[in-house]
Computed example of a mutant assay.
Amino acid sequence: MGGDGKVFTLAQVSEHNTPKDCWLIISGKVYDVTKFLEDHPGGDDVLVSATGKDATDDFEDVGHSENARGMLKDFYVGEIDASTIPKSTTYTPPKQPNYNQDKTSEFIIKLLQFLVPIAILGLAFGIRLYSKSS
């Protein structure tokens, strides 16, 4: 097909998003895969769903053969203007509240205030039963 050095924006590529007019971006290059939709082994839905975005990750994740990579040149129409593709953002976890040691200490103290008297009563009761049986 030959792109003659044309440079497209993401908006221009995303206009070609139907089964009758389907363009993809793979590794910074723009491809018109409309004529390949029926022949694509993964089905045409896979290609149509990848329009309007950089489909490089999708293409690489599948693990296309060298033959499939070679076929791309037949569908090449130009380059993508990289400045029009949004930068991917990294996940930033939400800020967690600080661990409050004081509340943990409070809980342990309250637990001990409950368990220690029960332990003392159990020990006293055990000693009394032991001394009566001797």
Rank of each mutant, 00 (worst) to 15 (best):
E38T: 11
A55V: 04
V77K: 10
T92E: 14
H64C: 08
P94S: 00
T92A: 13
D44V: 08
F75A: 13
T89H: 11
D81I: 00
Y99F: 15
D57N: 12
D74C: 06
Q96Y: 11
E60I: 12
D58R: 11
A82E: 15
V62A: 05
I85V: 15
I85Y: 02
H64T: 06
H64R: 08
T84G: 04
P41H: 06
D45K: 14
T51M: 05
T51Q: 09
A82H: 11
A55Y: 00
F59D: 01
N98D: 11
K103M: 12
Y99S: 04
H40K: 07
L72E: 01
M71Y: 13
L47F: 02
P41Q: 03
D44H: 11
Q96L: 15
S65H: 06
D57R: 12
G52T: 04
D45Y: 08
Y91D: 00
P86I: 03
D74H: 14
E38M: 09
S65W: 02
K103Q: 14
S49V: 01
V48Q: 07
S49P: 00
P41V: 05
K95E: 14
E66I: 09
D61P: 01
H64P: 04
Y99L: 14
V77Y: 02
G52R: 06
T89M: 13
A68V: 05
D45G: 13
L47K: 03
L47V: 07
D39G: 04
K87E: 15
K87W: 02
H40P: 07
F59C: 06
N98I: 03
G43V: 07
K87Q: 15
G70T: 00
Y99A: 05
V48G: 08
L72Y: 03
R69C: 10
N98C: 02
D57F: 11
G52K: 07
R69D: 11
N100I: 10
I85R: 06
V48Y: 07
S83Y: 01
K53V: 07
E38N: 12
F75V: 07
A50E: 01
T51H: 02
T84R: 07
Q101A: 12
A68H: 00
G43D: 03
V46T: 14
G52A: 05
S88K: 15
A82V: 14
V62R: 04
S83N: 11
D74A: 12
Y76D: 04
G78M: 00
N100E: 13
V62D: 00
Q96P: 06
H64N: 05
S49Q: 10
N98V: 08
